[in-house]
Simulated scan of single mutants.
Amino acid sequence: MIQQRQPRILLHTYPRWFYLPAALVYSVFFLIPTALAFYFSLTRWTLFDSTFIGFENYSDFLRDPQLVAGLLNTMIYAVITSGLKVLIALPLAVLFTSAIRLKGLFRSIVFFPVLVSTVAVGITFSTLMQPSNGLINTALGALGLPQPDWLGNPSLALYSVALVDVWKGIGIAMVIFSAGILSIPLEYFDAAKLEGGAWVAFRHVILPISRNATFTVILLSFIGGLRSFDLIWTMTHGGPGFASDVLTSVIFKQYQAGFYGLSTAGNVVLFILVTIIVYPLTRAFNRLELEL
């Protein structure tokens, strides 16, 4: 009996060994660093030693006035960028999947900013948005329009960077929407044309069937907005003052100042914030998908 059962046991457990390489990679590059980050957030540490201080870093971090401004700016930035990407990318995807000439060229033009380095985009738009001799204000002045200080005005800086983020990321959102639209059977569009034309096709065919693509764009854009750093740091360094500081730039400033334990606690706060926001959104989207 033992000799008969042994091959069955081996046959049952054999495929599970293929999980081992992925489990090792996941543990080394995610689980272990995450556990170490949680531990070091409870310490005052340097490169050579550490002292356990409990939740003191968290209390100091949460009392920091920069954090309050950074949390609010992070949420504003994430909502603006994710919302505008949906509102702009969906019409573009509808346009570029229709029967128009040179649609491949137009898609390439819209997608091109995705391929450009974020730092290069930030430097370029910092030059274009110069208040005195930037190309944008020069064009506005030629038209007789106001010439604002896009990055130096505390009330405009965060929104100016958010618009640049939308310009850079709109291509990815358009590709996702285009894939969703192209997967719709042509018979649906033929039926919509009989009922009322393009608006009926958009309202009753594209919007409902592309809902999964919409959820994907919202989630990816929102997570990217919560974690955004490089574009904001390149264009404003979080300024003027704390006007465009987000949570990641506040954490980076703490690292620069040598408060490693405090900034590690900030990273844990960011991790928890992303989890608290994204997990319910994912569950809600999955529930809506099952109801369709």
Rank of each mutant, 00 (worst) to 15 (best):
A142E: 12
L143C: 13
L143K: 09
L143W: 10
P146R: 06
D149I: 00
W150T: 05
G152W: 05
N153H: 07
N153F: 00
P154V: 02
P154T: 07
Y159H: 14
D165Q: 13
D165H: 13
V166C: 08
V166H: 04
I170S: 05
G171Y: 05
I172Q: 09
I172S: 08
M174Y: 05
I176C: 01
I176K: 01
I176H: 01
I176D: 00
F177C: 06
A179E: 00
A179Y: 00
A179G: 03
S183Q: 11
I184T: 05
L186D: 11
E187W: 09
F189K: 03
D190N: 12
D190C: 03
A192I: 10
L194E: 06
L194I: 13
E195P: 07
G196C: 06
W199D: 02
A201N: 07
R203E: 08
R203P: 07
H204K: 14
I206D: 01
L207K: 11
L207P: 05
P208N: 10
P208Y: 05
P208F: 09
I209K: 08
R211A: 12
N212V: 14
N212M: 11
T214K: 06
F215L: 02
F215N: 11
T216S: 15
T216I: 15
L219Q: 10
L220C: 04
S221A: 15
F222L: 15
I223T: 13
R227T: 15
L231V: 05
W233K: 03
W233D: 13
W233N: 14
W233R: 05
T236M: 09
T236Y: 07
T236C: 09
G238E: 08
G239V: 07
P240I: 03
G241S: 11
G241A: 12
F242L: 14
A243W: 04
L247M: 15
S249A: 12
V250A: 12
Y255C: 01
Q256Y: 09
G258C: 10
Y260M: 14
Y260N: 12
T264W: 03
A265T: 13
A265Y: 12
A265P: 14
A265L: 11
G266F: 08
V268R: 05
V268T: 08
V268Q: 04
V269E: 00
V269Q: 01
L270G: 02
F271C: 12
L273N: 04
L273R: 02
I276N: 04
I277P: 00
V278N: 04
Y279D: 00
P280R: 07
P280W: 05
L281V: 05
L281E: 01
L281S: 09
R283E: 08
R283Y: 05
